[in-house]
Simulated assay, not measured.
Amino acid sequence: MIEAAMIWNEPNNKSHWDPEVDPDWSKFAQMGILAAEAIHAANPAVKRVLGGISPIDPSFIQRLQGHGLIDHLDVIAMHGFPLDWNLWNINEWPAKVDEIRAVVPNHELWVSEVGVGSFGAEEVQEFGVKRTAELLIGKVPRIFWYSLYDLPREWEATTRHKEAEGSSYYRHFHMGLLDQSGRPKLGLEAFRPHAAELGLMQWFHFEDHRLDEAVRWLKELGVTRLRTGLSWADRFRPGALDWFDRQMEALEPFEVTATFCFTPEHLGIEPHHTSAPRDPQMFADFCAEMIERYAPAESAAIAAE
């Protein structure tokens, strides 16, 4: 079920990794190496993916190369939102992929989040789906559209400065192909012909009420590949494994890329989910536990036979 394990999410984005705690990303690299080794030991068939970088920055990849992390990975992933947050044109997508390919020519490249919101108009998202499909299908082997659902208005978006970011913050609530109530937007029908090639990225919050309905939509659309997350911070909630089991059982029909991220506050150098952990081996142990539980090597061997 889990074809790939993603180590963190947007490590070069201040909203997901605190550069004040780890200004040269050496702590991230150390944690990533330990996690990659633990994942490989648990199941060598699971691809190890660098959490999608945002912004798309070749110099960041070269920095991680210098720390030795890239040699422990199978896939380098990137994120892009050129019609919402990035300062580049949507037609530059192929060139952005080639920028990263130039510094890691021997690694597989994925676009693990790409999206266009309906903040301004649903027609903008509709265009964005169609143009993204034209530009990226065939360019990289895995693409994950972000996302199926709008983020509910009563929840918070995972950003550093919240409402102080102005309209950039509020765009986070309009990225779904379905609105908060489950109503399809124009972009949904534009996505449907490309569902198998594009795939979907959908975060499921702890005990997310949308899980079963989301699975129904994924099947109805013909999605075969899904990216989601298993939160290290959530592992310490009461009933965490029950929720993880329910989530992963529901997602069994799909090829899943599982993203492991979010530092538990009590384990961080600073008490925040973006902080480097005090003991990076604890994150590696979490990654190994999740692979052993949801993608054990024995099951993969049986399936291959």
Rank of each mutant, 00 (worst) to 15 (best):
Q281E: 13
Y149P: 04
E265Q: 10
D22Q: 08
I33R: 13
L186M: 13
M1L: 13
R160N: 09
H273T: 15
R63A: 10
E197S: 14
D279G: 01
F244G: 00
E213G: 02
W203M: 13
H266T: 13
L218C: 07
V103Y: 06
G268E: 09
A276W: 01
W110D: 04
E270V: 12
P44E: 08
L109W: 03
D22Y: 05
L226S: 02
R131N: 05
I76W: 00
R293P: 00
E126G: 01
I137W: 00
I100S: 00
A133G: 08
P58H: 13
C261W: 11
P141Y: 03
T259W: 01
G120C: 02
E207T: 08
I302H: 13
L221G: 08
A42L: 10
F119L: 03
Y170H: 15
Q180M: 11
L230C: 06
D234C: 09
F28N: 07
D245Q: 04
N89W: 14
S275M: 04
I56V: 14
L218F: 12
D242W: 05
E265N: 11
I302V: 14
A38C: 08
F244E: 02
F144N: 11
T257G: 05
W88Q: 04
A133D: 06
E220D: 14
W217R: 12
S275A: 14
H161Q: 03
A41Y: 03
R171P: 03
R101N: 07
L83R: 15
E197W: 06
F144S: 05
A29H: 09
I291E: 03
F191M: 08
C261Y: 08
P277Q: 02
W17A: 02
L178K: 09
P44W: 03
L211P: 12
L211I: 09
A42P: 02
P264F: 00
I61C: 03
D22K: 10
D98A: 15
A36Q: 06
F254S: 10
A5M: 14
L83D: 10
E134K: 00
T132I: 01
P19F: 15
A5D: 01
E197D: 15
H107I: 06
E123Y: 01
W110G: 02
I76Q: 06
E126T: 01
E249S: 12
R192Q: 12
I291H: 03
Y294H: 08
A295H: 11
M31P: 02
W85T: 04
H79K: 08
L69Y: 14
P264H: 01
D242M: 03
T259M: 06
M248T: 07
A157R: 06
V223H: 06
M31I: 05
G115R: 07
L251A: 10
A36W: 10
V114T: 12
K27P: 00
E134I: 00
G128N: 04
K47R: 10
D279C: 03
A300R: 15
S167D: 11
R101T: 10
E292N: 13
E156W: 15
L136S: 04
M248L: 09
W85D: 05
I137M: 00
E255M: 08
T257F: 07
N89R: 15
V104F: 09
L148H: 02
H174L: 01
L151G: 07
I70D: 07
